[in-house]
Design a protein around this nucleic acid. Structure first.
Lengths: 244, 244
DNA sequence: GAGTGGTCTAGACCACAAT
DNA sequence: TTGTGGTCTAGACCACTCC
Protein backbone atom coordinates (compact mmCIF):
# COMPACT_ATOMS: atom_id res chain seq x y z
CA UNK A 1 0.00 0.00 0.00
CA UNK A 2 1.61 3.20 -1.17
CA UNK A 3 0.36 6.25 0.63
CA UNK A 4 0.11 9.31 -1.55
CA UNK A 5 1.35 12.64 -0.33
CA UNK A 6 -1.33 15.13 0.62
CA UNK A 7 0.34 17.71 -1.64
CA UNK A 8 0.22 15.66 -4.84
CA UNK A 9 -2.36 16.96 -7.29
CA UNK A 10 -4.09 13.59 -7.66
CA UNK A 11 -4.49 13.13 -3.92
CA UNK A 12 -7.23 10.79 -2.80
CA UNK A 13 -8.17 9.94 0.77
CA UNK A 14 -6.72 6.77 2.22
CA UNK A 15 -10.07 4.99 2.38
CA UNK A 16 -10.53 5.76 -1.30
CA UNK A 17 -7.15 4.28 -2.13
CA UNK A 18 -8.03 1.15 -0.17
CA UNK A 19 -11.41 1.04 -1.94
CA UNK A 20 -9.78 1.26 -5.36
CA UNK A 21 -7.12 -1.30 -4.53
CA UNK A 22 -9.72 -3.84 -3.41
CA UNK A 23 -11.91 -3.04 -6.39
CA UNK A 24 -8.92 -3.67 -8.67
CA UNK A 25 -8.20 -6.99 -7.00
CA UNK A 26 -11.80 -8.10 -7.39
CA UNK A 27 -11.86 -7.00 -11.03
CA UNK A 28 -8.69 -8.98 -11.72
CA UNK A 29 -10.13 -12.11 -10.19
CA UNK A 30 -7.75 -12.09 -7.20
CA UNK A 31 -10.81 -13.38 -5.31
CA UNK A 32 -13.64 -15.25 -7.05
CA UNK A 33 -17.34 -14.52 -6.62
CA UNK A 34 -18.62 -15.77 -3.24
CA UNK A 35 -15.06 -15.93 -1.87
CA UNK A 36 -14.54 -14.24 1.49
CA UNK A 37 -12.20 -11.27 1.62
CA UNK A 38 -9.69 -11.13 4.47
CA UNK A 39 -11.23 -9.72 7.64
CA UNK A 40 -11.16 -6.00 8.32
CA UNK A 41 -8.39 -6.48 10.85
CA UNK A 42 -6.20 -8.50 8.54
CA UNK A 43 -6.64 -6.02 5.69
CA UNK A 44 -5.81 -3.15 8.04
CA UNK A 45 -2.54 -4.82 9.08
CA UNK A 46 -1.67 -5.82 5.50
CA UNK A 47 -2.25 -2.32 4.16
CA UNK A 48 -0.88 -0.44 7.16
CA UNK A 49 -4.02 1.55 7.85
CA UNK A 50 -6.52 1.53 10.68
CA UNK A 51 -9.47 -0.82 10.77
CA UNK A 52 -11.85 2.14 10.54
CA UNK A 53 -10.34 3.13 7.21
CA UNK A 54 -10.72 -0.39 5.84
CA UNK A 55 -14.29 -0.43 7.12
CA UNK A 56 -15.18 2.73 5.25
CA UNK A 57 -13.72 1.31 2.04
CA UNK A 58 -15.64 -1.95 2.47
CA UNK A 59 -18.88 -0.12 3.26
CA UNK A 60 -18.51 1.81 0.02
CA UNK A 61 -17.84 -1.39 -1.93
CA UNK A 62 -20.95 -2.92 -0.35
CA UNK A 63 -23.02 0.09 -1.41
CA UNK A 64 -21.80 -0.45 -4.97
CA UNK A 65 -22.84 -4.11 -4.77
CA UNK A 66 -19.29 -5.31 -5.30
CA UNK A 67 -19.16 -7.12 -1.97
CA UNK A 68 -21.71 -8.44 0.49
CA UNK A 69 -21.11 -8.09 4.22
CA UNK A 70 -22.56 -10.60 6.66
CA UNK A 71 -22.33 -10.02 10.37
CA UNK A 72 -20.51 -12.78 12.14
CA UNK A 73 -19.33 -14.38 8.88
CA UNK A 74 -17.28 -12.03 6.78
CA UNK A 75 -17.19 -9.93 3.63
CA UNK A 76 -17.74 -11.77 0.34
CA UNK A 77 -17.27 -10.92 -3.32
CA UNK A 78 -20.73 -10.36 -4.76
CA UNK A 79 -21.96 -13.06 -7.12
CA UNK A 80 -24.53 -12.58 -9.85
CA UNK A 81 -27.33 -14.78 -8.66
CA UNK A 82 -30.24 -15.31 -11.01
CA UNK A 83 -32.28 -13.20 -8.62
CA UNK A 84 -29.88 -10.30 -8.84
CA UNK A 85 -29.77 -10.51 -12.63
CA UNK A 86 -33.51 -10.35 -12.80
CA UNK A 87 -34.25 -7.90 -10.02
CA UNK A 88 -31.44 -5.55 -10.77
CA UNK A 89 -31.20 -5.71 -14.54
CA UNK A 90 -34.68 -6.66 -15.67
CA UNK A 91 -36.94 -3.70 -15.14
CA UNK A 92 -40.13 -4.96 -16.76
CA UNK A 93 -42.92 -5.38 -14.30
CA UNK A 94 -46.57 -6.41 -14.45
CA UNK A 95 -49.04 -3.57 -14.36
CA UNK A 96 -50.31 -4.71 -10.96
CA UNK A 97 -46.76 -4.33 -9.65
CA UNK A 98 -45.85 -8.03 -9.60
CA UNK A 99 -42.48 -9.16 -10.95
CA UNK A 100 -42.73 -11.02 -14.23
CA UNK A 101 -39.98 -13.49 -14.92
CA UNK A 102 -39.23 -14.03 -18.58
CA UNK A 103 -38.35 -17.30 -20.29
CA UNK A 104 -36.33 -17.43 -23.49
CA UNK A 105 -36.55 -19.16 -26.85
CA UNK A 106 -33.30 -19.07 -28.82
CA UNK A 107 -33.75 -17.92 -32.40
CA UNK A 108 -30.20 -17.62 -33.61
CA UNK A 109 -26.64 -17.52 -32.30
CA UNK A 110 -23.64 -16.92 -34.53
CA UNK A 111 -20.35 -15.10 -34.83
CA UNK A 112 -19.64 -12.40 -37.37
CA UNK A 113 -17.62 -9.32 -38.20
CA UNK A 114 -18.66 -6.35 -36.05
CA UNK A 115 -20.60 -3.71 -37.97
CA UNK A 116 -20.05 -0.02 -37.57
CA UNK A 117 -22.78 0.48 -34.97
CA UNK A 118 -21.57 -2.53 -32.99
CA UNK A 119 -17.98 -1.31 -33.01
CA UNK A 120 -19.03 2.16 -31.90
CA UNK A 121 -21.25 0.94 -29.08
CA UNK A 122 -18.80 -1.70 -27.79
CA UNK A 123 -15.63 0.27 -28.43
CA UNK A 124 -14.16 -2.37 -30.76
CA UNK A 125 -11.48 -1.87 -33.45
CA UNK A 126 -12.17 -2.43 -37.10
CA UNK A 127 -12.04 -6.11 -37.95
CA UNK A 128 -13.17 -7.28 -34.49
CA UNK A 129 -15.68 -10.06 -34.39
CA UNK A 130 -18.80 -10.36 -32.28
CA UNK A 131 -21.23 -13.00 -31.15
CA UNK A 132 -24.88 -12.24 -31.86
CA UNK A 133 -27.63 -13.97 -29.93
CA UNK A 134 -31.22 -13.47 -31.06
CA UNK A 135 -33.92 -14.53 -28.65
CA UNK A 136 -37.64 -14.36 -28.26
CA UNK A 137 -38.57 -13.87 -24.63
CA UNK A 138 -41.91 -14.80 -23.14
CA UNK A 139 -43.77 -13.48 -20.15
CA UNK A 140 -45.97 -16.35 -19.08
CA UNK A 141 -47.12 -17.96 -22.34
CA UNK A 142 -47.04 -14.73 -24.28
CA UNK A 143 -44.16 -13.76 -26.60
CA UNK A 144 -43.36 -10.26 -25.37
CA UNK A 145 -39.79 -9.31 -26.27
CA UNK A 146 -37.53 -9.77 -29.26
CA UNK A 147 -33.96 -9.29 -28.22
CA UNK A 148 -30.53 -9.18 -29.79
CA UNK A 149 -27.48 -9.58 -27.59
CA UNK A 150 -24.13 -8.58 -29.10
CA UNK A 151 -20.91 -9.65 -27.37
CA UNK A 152 -17.25 -8.98 -28.17
CA UNK A 153 -16.19 -12.46 -29.31
CA UNK A 154 -12.76 -12.07 -27.74
CA UNK A 155 -14.26 -11.86 -24.25
CA UNK A 156 -16.43 -14.95 -24.59
CA UNK A 157 -14.47 -17.70 -26.36
CA UNK A 158 -16.46 -20.80 -27.35
CA UNK A 159 -19.75 -19.44 -26.10
CA UNK A 160 -22.58 -20.94 -28.14
CA UNK A 161 -20.30 -23.12 -30.23
CA UNK A 162 -21.55 -26.56 -31.24
CA UNK A 163 -25.14 -25.82 -30.46
CA UNK A 164 -24.43 -25.27 -26.77
CA UNK A 165 -27.48 -24.17 -24.83
CA UNK A 166 -27.74 -20.48 -23.94
CA UNK A 167 -29.17 -20.01 -20.44
CA UNK A 168 -32.06 -17.69 -19.76
CA UNK A 169 -30.09 -15.36 -17.51
CA UNK A 170 -26.71 -14.54 -19.00
CA UNK A 171 -24.93 -12.41 -16.43
CA UNK A 172 -24.11 -15.19 -13.99
CA UNK A 173 -22.77 -17.20 -16.94
CA UNK A 174 -20.55 -14.28 -17.99
CA UNK A 175 -19.21 -14.09 -14.46
CA UNK A 176 -18.71 -17.75 -13.63
CA UNK A 177 -17.44 -19.00 -16.94
CA UNK A 178 -15.66 -15.98 -18.42
CA UNK A 179 -14.75 -13.89 -15.39
CA UNK A 180 -16.74 -10.97 -16.77
CA UNK A 181 -18.73 -9.17 -14.09
CA UNK A 182 -21.49 -6.84 -15.23
CA UNK A 183 -21.36 -4.08 -12.67
CA UNK A 184 -23.42 -1.38 -14.32
CA UNK A 185 -25.59 -0.75 -17.35
CA UNK A 186 -26.94 2.29 -19.13
CA UNK A 187 -30.21 2.05 -20.98
CA UNK A 188 -31.79 4.23 -23.64
CA UNK A 189 -35.52 3.87 -24.11
CA UNK A 190 -37.59 4.82 -27.11
CA UNK A 191 -41.01 4.07 -28.48
CA UNK A 192 -40.75 2.51 -31.94
CA UNK A 193 -43.03 0.91 -34.50
CA UNK A 194 -42.88 -2.88 -34.92
CA UNK A 195 -41.30 -4.09 -38.15
CA UNK A 196 -43.14 -6.82 -39.98
CA UNK A 197 -40.74 -9.46 -38.64
CA UNK A 198 -41.19 -8.28 -35.08
CA UNK A 199 -44.93 -8.01 -35.56
CA UNK A 200 -45.09 -11.63 -36.64
CA UNK A 201 -43.00 -12.87 -33.74
CA UNK A 202 -45.03 -10.92 -31.21
CA UNK A 203 -48.44 -11.50 -32.80
CA UNK A 204 -49.24 -7.84 -33.35
CA UNK A 205 -49.83 -5.75 -36.44
CA UNK A 206 -46.83 -4.11 -38.14
CA UNK A 207 -46.42 -0.56 -36.88
CA UNK A 208 -47.69 -1.43 -33.40
CA UNK A 209 -45.86 0.57 -30.70
CA UNK A 210 -43.02 -1.28 -28.98
CA UNK A 211 -40.73 -0.17 -26.18
CA UNK A 212 -37.14 -0.32 -27.37
CA UNK A 213 -34.53 -0.84 -24.66
CA UNK A 214 -30.98 -0.23 -25.85
CA UNK A 215 -28.66 -1.41 -23.10
CA UNK A 216 -24.91 -1.19 -22.79
CA UNK A 217 -23.54 -3.32 -19.96
CA UNK A 218 -20.19 -2.38 -18.38
CA UNK A 219 -17.77 -4.41 -16.31
CA UNK A 220 -16.05 -3.39 -13.09
CA UNK A 221 -13.61 -1.20 -14.99
CA UNK A 222 -16.33 0.53 -16.98
CA UNK A 223 -15.52 -1.28 -20.22
CA UNK A 224 -18.48 -2.24 -22.43
CA UNK A 225 -19.02 -6.00 -22.45
CA UNK A 226 -22.51 -6.43 -23.88
CA UNK A 227 -24.85 -4.53 -26.15
CA UNK A 228 -28.46 -5.60 -25.91
CA UNK A 229 -31.32 -4.31 -28.01
CA UNK A 230 -34.78 -5.37 -26.85
CA UNK A 231 -38.14 -4.52 -28.33
CA UNK A 232 -40.99 -5.13 -25.93
CA UNK A 233 -44.73 -5.35 -26.00
CA UNK A 234 -45.98 -3.21 -23.14
CA UNK A 235 -49.69 -3.81 -23.06
CA UNK A 236 -49.61 -5.93 -19.91
CA UNK A 237 -46.30 -4.84 -18.58
CA UNK A 238 -44.26 -1.67 -18.00
CA UNK A 239 -40.69 -0.56 -17.47
CA UNK A 240 -40.25 0.51 -13.85
CA UNK A 241 -37.83 3.28 -12.94
CA UNK A 242 -37.17 5.00 -9.62
CA UNK A 243 -35.75 8.51 -9.32
CA UNK A 244 -34.42 9.54 -5.91
CA UNK B 1 -33.40 12.42 22.11
CA UNK B 2 -34.82 9.26 23.59
CA UNK B 3 -32.47 6.33 23.36
CA UNK B 4 -34.21 3.06 22.70
CA UNK B 5 -33.25 -0.01 24.65
CA UNK B 6 -31.27 -2.59 22.74
CA UNK B 7 -33.78 -5.24 23.85
CA UNK B 8 -36.86 -3.57 22.42
CA UNK B 9 -38.13 -5.32 19.31
CA UNK B 10 -38.09 -2.18 17.18
CA UNK B 11 -34.50 -1.34 18.03
CA UNK B 12 -32.67 0.89 15.60
CA UNK B 13 -29.07 2.04 15.86
CA UNK B 14 -28.44 5.44 17.37
CA UNK B 15 -27.25 6.98 14.11
CA UNK B 16 -30.46 5.77 12.49
CA UNK B 17 -32.54 7.41 15.21
CA UNK B 18 -30.64 10.66 14.71
CA UNK B 19 -31.11 10.34 10.96
CA UNK B 20 -34.86 9.87 11.30
CA UNK B 21 -35.20 12.71 13.78
CA UNK B 22 -33.43 15.15 11.48
CA UNK B 23 -35.39 13.86 8.49
CA UNK B 24 -38.61 14.48 10.43
CA UNK B 25 -37.55 18.01 11.31
CA UNK B 26 -36.72 18.79 7.70
CA UNK B 27 -40.01 17.31 6.49
CA UNK B 28 -41.92 19.44 8.99
CA UNK B 29 -40.20 22.60 7.86
CA UNK B 30 -38.27 23.09 11.11
CA UNK B 31 -35.53 24.34 8.78
CA UNK B 32 -36.25 25.77 5.33
CA UNK B 33 -34.49 24.82 2.10
CA UNK B 34 -30.97 26.31 1.96
CA UNK B 35 -30.97 26.89 5.73
CA UNK B 36 -27.91 25.61 7.57
CA UNK B 37 -28.41 22.84 10.13
CA UNK B 38 -26.62 23.19 13.46
CA UNK B 39 -23.01 22.02 13.27
CA UNK B 40 -22.13 18.41 13.98
CA UNK B 41 -20.77 19.36 17.38
CA UNK B 42 -23.86 21.29 18.40
CA UNK B 43 -26.18 18.50 17.28
CA UNK B 44 -24.10 15.96 19.18
CA UNK B 45 -24.39 17.97 22.40
CA UNK B 46 -28.10 18.64 21.87
CA UNK B 47 -28.90 14.98 21.24
CA UNK B 48 -26.44 13.55 23.76
CA UNK B 49 -24.54 11.40 21.29
CA UNK B 50 -21.02 11.54 19.92
CA UNK B 51 -20.06 13.66 16.95
CA UNK B 52 -19.22 10.52 14.99
CA UNK B 53 -22.78 9.29 15.33
CA UNK B 54 -24.19 12.62 14.13
CA UNK B 55 -21.73 12.53 11.24
CA UNK B 56 -22.94 9.12 10.12
CA UNK B 57 -26.56 10.31 10.21
CA UNK B 58 -25.71 13.45 8.22
CA UNK B 59 -23.70 11.47 5.67
CA UNK B 60 -26.71 9.24 5.10
CA UNK B 61 -28.99 12.27 4.70
CA UNK B 62 -26.52 13.70 2.19
CA UNK B 63 -26.55 10.45 0.21
CA UNK B 64 -30.35 10.71 0.06
CA UNK B 65 -30.06 14.28 -1.25
CA UNK B 66 -31.90 15.68 1.76
CA UNK B 67 -28.97 17.84 2.83
CA UNK B 68 -25.87 19.22 1.18
CA UNK B 69 -22.57 19.29 3.06
CA UNK B 70 -19.97 21.94 2.30
CA UNK B 71 -16.55 21.76 3.84
CA UNK B 72 -15.75 24.82 5.86
CA UNK B 73 -19.31 26.14 5.65
CA UNK B 74 -21.82 23.75 7.09
CA UNK B 75 -24.66 21.37 6.31
CA UNK B 76 -27.67 22.79 4.46
CA UNK B 77 -31.18 21.62 3.72
CA UNK B 78 -31.24 20.65 0.04
CA UNK B 79 -33.19 23.01 -2.21
CA UNK B 80 -34.76 22.13 -5.53
CA UNK B 81 -32.81 24.21 -7.96
CA UNK B 82 -34.01 24.29 -11.53
CA UNK B 83 -30.90 22.28 -12.40
CA UNK B 84 -31.76 19.57 -9.94
CA UNK B 85 -35.33 19.40 -11.20
CA UNK B 86 -34.14 18.96 -14.72
CA UNK B 87 -31.10 16.77 -14.17
CA UNK B 88 -32.65 14.56 -11.57
CA UNK B 89 -36.25 14.31 -12.67
CA UNK B 90 -36.11 14.87 -16.41
CA UNK B 91 -34.58 11.83 -18.02
CA UNK B 92 -35.06 12.68 -21.69
CA UNK B 93 -31.79 13.16 -23.46
CA UNK B 94 -30.71 13.89 -27.02
CA UNK B 95 -29.52 10.90 -29.00
CA UNK B 96 -26.00 12.31 -29.09
CA UNK B 97 -26.02 12.34 -25.29
CA UNK B 98 -26.56 16.08 -24.83
CA UNK B 99 -29.11 17.31 -22.29
CA UNK B 100 -32.22 18.77 -23.89
CA UNK B 101 -34.03 21.36 -21.82
CA UNK B 102 -37.74 21.54 -22.48
CA UNK B 103 -39.88 24.65 -22.60
CA UNK B 104 -43.59 24.62 -21.87
CA UNK B 105 -46.76 25.94 -23.45
CA UNK B 106 -49.76 25.88 -21.10
CA UNK B 107 -52.85 24.33 -22.66
CA UNK B 108 -55.23 24.17 -19.74
CA UNK B 109 -55.28 24.49 -15.96
CA UNK B 110 -58.40 23.87 -13.90
CA UNK B 111 -59.73 22.32 -10.74
CA UNK B 112 -62.15 19.41 -10.65
CA UNK B 113 -63.42 16.43 -8.73
CA UNK B 114 -60.84 13.63 -8.63
CA UNK B 115 -61.74 10.68 -10.84
CA UNK B 116 -61.31 7.09 -9.79
CA UNK B 117 -57.86 6.65 -11.36
CA UNK B 118 -56.67 9.94 -9.86
CA UNK B 119 -57.89 9.00 -6.40
CA UNK B 120 -56.24 5.59 -6.62
CA UNK B 121 -52.91 6.94 -7.81
CA UNK B 122 -52.76 9.87 -5.38
CA UNK B 123 -54.37 8.09 -2.43
CA UNK B 124 -57.24 10.57 -2.17
CA UNK B 125 -60.68 9.99 -0.56
CA UNK B 126 -63.88 10.12 -2.55
CA UNK B 127 -64.94 13.71 -3.12
CA UNK B 128 -61.42 15.12 -3.07
CA UNK B 129 -60.62 17.71 -5.69
CA UNK B 130 -57.57 17.99 -7.88
CA UNK B 131 -55.83 20.55 -10.03
CA UNK B 132 -55.11 19.43 -13.59
CA UNK B 133 -52.45 21.14 -15.66
CA UNK B 134 -52.19 20.26 -19.34
CA UNK B 135 -49.05 21.34 -21.12
CA UNK B 136 -47.33 20.94 -24.42
CA UNK B 137 -43.59 20.76 -23.98
CA UNK B 138 -41.07 21.60 -26.66
CA UNK B 139 -37.51 20.48 -27.20
CA UNK B 140 -35.96 23.29 -29.17
CA UNK B 141 -38.70 24.44 -31.55
CA UNK B 142 -40.28 21.03 -31.82
CA UNK B 143 -43.41 20.03 -29.84
CA UNK B 144 -42.30 16.76 -28.30
CA UNK B 145 -44.34 16.00 -25.18
CA UNK B 146 -47.97 16.30 -24.18
CA UNK B 147 -48.25 16.20 -20.44
CA UNK B 148 -50.95 16.17 -17.79
CA UNK B 149 -50.02 17.05 -14.23
CA UNK B 150 -52.56 16.14 -11.53
CA UNK B 151 -52.18 17.63 -8.04
CA UNK B 152 -54.19 17.16 -4.84
CA UNK B 153 -55.89 20.57 -4.64
CA UNK B 154 -55.63 20.62 -0.85
CA UNK B 155 -51.83 20.67 -0.99
CA UNK B 156 -51.59 23.53 -3.46
CA UNK B 157 -54.13 26.23 -2.55
CA UNK B 158 -54.55 29.06 -5.08
CA UNK B 159 -52.11 27.57 -7.57
CA UNK B 160 -53.10 28.64 -11.07
CA UNK B 161 -56.04 30.76 -9.92
CA UNK B 162 -56.78 33.98 -11.80
CA UNK B 163 -54.69 33.05 -14.81
CA UNK B 164 -51.48 32.94 -12.79
CA UNK B 165 -48.50 31.82 -14.83
CA UNK B 166 -47.31 28.22 -14.37
CA UNK B 167 -43.51 28.01 -14.41
CA UNK B 168 -41.66 25.56 -16.60
CA UNK B 169 -40.11 23.66 -13.71
CA UNK B 170 -42.65 22.93 -11.01
CA UNK B 171 -40.74 21.23 -8.22
CA UNK B 172 -38.97 24.29 -6.90
CA UNK B 173 -42.35 26.08 -6.90
CA UNK B 174 -43.92 23.25 -4.89
CA UNK B 175 -41.10 23.53 -2.39
CA UNK B 176 -40.76 27.28 -2.02
CA UNK B 177 -44.39 28.26 -2.13
CA UNK B 178 -46.19 25.25 -0.67
CA UNK B 179 -43.55 23.55 1.47
CA UNK B 180 -43.92 20.37 -0.56
CA UNK B 181 -40.59 18.71 -1.27
CA UNK B 182 -40.48 16.10 -3.98
CA UNK B 183 -37.94 13.62 -2.67
CA UNK B 184 -38.55 10.63 -4.87
CA UNK B 185 -40.53 9.52 -7.90
CA UNK B 186 -41.48 6.22 -9.45
CA UNK B 187 -42.03 6.01 -13.17
CA UNK B 188 -43.78 3.46 -15.33
CA UNK B 189 -42.89 3.48 -19.01
CA UNK B 190 -44.85 2.05 -21.88
CA UNK B 191 -44.95 2.39 -25.64
CA UNK B 192 -48.38 3.58 -26.77
CA UNK B 193 -50.07 4.72 -29.97
CA UNK B 194 -50.78 8.44 -30.38
CA UNK B 195 -54.45 9.41 -30.17
CA UNK B 196 -55.71 11.78 -32.83
CA UNK B 197 -55.51 14.72 -30.40
CA UNK B 198 -51.96 13.89 -29.45
CA UNK B 199 -51.03 13.30 -33.08
CA UNK B 200 -52.26 16.75 -33.99
CA UNK B 201 -50.40 18.46 -31.16
CA UNK B 202 -47.17 16.64 -31.95
CA UNK B 203 -47.46 16.80 -35.76
CA UNK B 204 -47.42 13.06 -36.29
CA UNK B 205 -49.93 10.60 -37.68
CA UNK B 206 -52.46 9.01 -35.33
CA UNK B 207 -51.16 5.67 -34.10
CA UNK B 208 -47.54 6.81 -34.17
CA UNK B 209 -45.54 5.25 -31.30
CA UNK B 210 -45.11 7.47 -28.25
CA UNK B 211 -43.24 6.85 -25.03
CA UNK B 212 -45.66 7.15 -22.12
CA UNK B 213 -44.11 8.15 -18.80
CA UNK B 214 -46.45 7.70 -15.85
CA UNK B 215 -44.82 9.34 -12.85
CA UNK B 216 -45.88 9.42 -9.24
CA UNK B 217 -43.88 11.94 -7.19
CA UNK B 218 -43.55 11.41 -3.42
CA UNK B 219 -42.66 13.83 -0.65
CA UNK B 220 -40.20 13.29 2.19
CA UNK B 221 -42.70 11.09 4.02
CA UNK B 222 -43.44 8.97 0.98
CA UNK B 223 -46.88 10.49 0.38
CA UNK B 224 -47.94 10.98 -3.24
CA UNK B 225 -48.02 14.68 -4.15
CA UNK B 226 -48.13 14.68 -7.94
CA UNK B 227 -49.26 12.38 -10.72
CA UNK B 228 -47.80 13.21 -14.09
CA UNK B 229 -48.63 11.49 -17.35
CA UNK B 230 -46.39 12.40 -20.29
CA UNK B 231 -46.50 11.14 -23.83
CA UNK B 232 -43.28 11.79 -25.71
CA UNK B 233 -42.02 11.70 -29.24
CA UNK B 234 -38.74 9.82 -29.16
CA UNK B 235 -37.38 10.14 -32.66
CA UNK B 236 -34.64 12.61 -31.71
CA UNK B 237 -34.51 11.89 -28.03
CA UNK B 238 -34.47 8.97 -25.59
CA UNK B 239 -35.18 8.19 -21.97
CA UNK B 240 -31.89 7.55 -20.16
CA UNK B 241 -31.70 5.10 -17.29
CA UNK B 242 -28.75 3.79 -15.31
CA UNK B 243 -28.71 0.45 -13.51
CA UNK B 244 -25.95 -0.10 -10.97
C1' DG C 1 -14.96 -19.61 22.89
C1' DA C 2 -13.02 -17.45 18.91
C1' DG C 3 -13.69 -14.68 15.02
C1' DT C 4 -16.46 -11.72 12.31
C1' DG C 5 -18.87 -7.42 11.19
C1' DG C 6 -21.95 -3.52 13.56
C1' DT C 7 -22.18 0.34 16.65
C1' DC C 8 -20.44 4.02 19.42
C1' DT C 9 -17.10 6.87 21.39
C1' DA C 10 -13.10 10.24 21.86
C1' DG C 11 -9.67 12.75 20.03
C1' DA C 12 -6.18 14.35 16.67
C1' DC C 13 -5.12 16.72 12.59
C1' DC C 14 -6.29 18.65 7.94
C1' DA C 15 -8.69 21.56 4.28
C1' DC C 16 -11.65 25.05 3.51
C1' DA C 17 -14.56 29.35 4.14
C1' DA C 18 -15.59 33.44 6.35
C1' DT C 19 -14.06 37.39 9.01
C1' DT D 1 -8.42 33.53 13.78
C1' DT D 2 -12.44 30.88 14.27
C1' DG D 3 -15.60 27.45 13.00
C1' DT D 4 -16.94 24.14 9.77
C1' DG D 5 -16.85 19.57 7.63
C1' DG D 6 -13.24 15.70 6.00
C1' DT D 7 -10.00 12.18 7.28
C1' DC D 8 -7.73 8.97 10.23
C1' DT D 9 -6.89 6.56 14.32
C1' DA D 10 -7.59 3.58 18.56
C1' DG D 11 -10.32 1.17 21.40
C1' DA D 12 -14.60 -0.52 23.67
C1' DC D 13 -18.58 -3.21 23.51
C1' DC D 14 -22.35 -5.75 21.07
C1' DA D 15 -24.64 -9.27 17.91
C1' DC D 16 -24.10 -12.94 15.10
C1' DT D 17 -21.98 -17.36 13.23
C1' DC D 18 -19.46 -21.32 13.58
C1' DC D 19 -17.02 -24.82 15.99
Amino acid sequence: MTIESTDSPGFRPLYRQVHDLLRRRIAQGHWRPDDPLPSEGRLAVELGVSQGTVRKALDDLARENLVVRRQGRGTFVAAHSVERSLFHFFMLCGDEGERRLPTSRLLDCRRGLAGEAERARLGLPEGASVLRIDRLRLLGERPAIVERVVLPAALFPDLGNGGEAIPNTLYDLYQRRFGVTVARATERLKAVAATSDEAEQLSVVPGAPLLEIDRLALDLDGRPVEWRLSRCLTDEVHYASVLE
